[in-house]
Simulated scan of single mutants.
Amino acid sequence: MRNRRTAVGVLALLALAACGNETGAGDGSGSVRTAPRLTGVHWNVDSVTAGGRTTEAPDGAHVVIGPEGGATGNFGCNRFSAEAGTDGDTITVRRATTTEMGCEKGVQQFETTLSRAFSGELTAAVTGRTLTLTTRTGDTIRLTSEPPAPLTGTTWTVTSLVSGSTASSLPAGTEKRARLTFGRDGSVRGTLGCNTFRGNVTVTGSTVTFRRTTTTRMMCPAPRMELERVLLAVLDGRTTYRIDHRTLSLTAANGEGLAATAQASGG
Results as ranks from 00 to 15, higher is better:
Thr6Glu: 08
Thr6Arg: 12
Thr6Asn: 07
Ala7Pro: 00
Gly9Ile: 09
Leu11Pro: 07
Ala12Ser: 12
Ala12Cys: 11
Leu13Trp: 10
Leu13Ile: 14
Cys19Val: 15
Gly20Trp: 12
Gly20Asn: 14
Thr23Val: 07
Gly24Ala: 02
Gly24Lys: 01
Asp27Gly: 15
Gly28Tyr: 13
Ser29Asn: 15
Arg33Lys: 14
Thr34Ala: 14
Val45Ser: 13
Ser47Phe: 02
Gly52Gln: 10
Thr55Arg: 06
Thr55Cys: 06
Thr55Asn: 05
Ala57Arg: 06
Ala57Glu: 02
Ala57Phe: 08
His62Leu: 04
Ile65His: 06
Gly69Ala: 06
Gly69Thr: 08
Gly70Val: 14
Ala71Arg: 07
Thr72Ser: 10
Gly73Ile: 00
Gly73Met: 00
Asn74Asp: 12
Asn74Met: 03
Phe75Met: 13
Gly76Tyr: 08
Asn78Val: 06
Ser81Ile: 00
Glu83Val: 13
Glu83Asn: 10
Val93Ile: 15
Thr97Tyr: 09
Thr99His: 03
Gly106Tyr: 03
Glu111Met: 01
Glu111Ala: 04
Thr112Trp: 04
Thr112Arg: 14
Thr112Ala: 15
Thr113Asp: 05
Leu114Thr: 09
Ser115Tyr: 00
Ala117Gln: 11
Phe118Gln: 06
Gly120Gln: 09
Ala124His: 10
Val126Leu: 02
Thr130Asn: 09
Thr130Val: 14
Leu131Thr: 07
Leu133Phe: 11
Thr135Gln: 13
Thr135Phe: 09
Gly138Gln: 06
Ile141Cys: 11
Leu143Ala: 10
Thr144Lys: 02
Glu146His: 03
Pro148Ile: 05
Leu151Thr: 09
Thr155Val: 13
Thr159Asn: 12
Ser160Met: 08
Leu161Phe: 07
Val162Ser: 09
Ser163Met: 11
Ser163Gly: 13
Ala167Glu: 15
Thr174Tyr: 06
Lys176His: 15
Arg177Gly: 12
Thr181Asn: 05
Thr181Glu: 01
Thr181Ser: 12
Arg184Cys: 02
Gly186Ile: 02
Arg189Lys: 08
Thr191Pro: 00
Leu192Arg: 09
Asn195Thr: 08
Asn195Leu: 11
Thr196Arg: 14
Phe197Ala: 04
Val201Tyr: 01
Thr202Val: 12
Val208Ser: 07
Thr209His: 03
Thr215Val: 04
Thr215Arg: 06
Met218Ser: 07
Met219Glu: 07
Cys220Ile: 04
Ala222Cys: 02
Leu231Glu: 05
Leu231Ser: 00
Thr247Glu: 15
Ala252Phe: 03
Glu256Ile: 11
Glu256Met: 09
Glu256Asn: 09
Ala260Ile: 06
Ala262His: 01
Ala262Trp: 00
Gln263Ser: 14
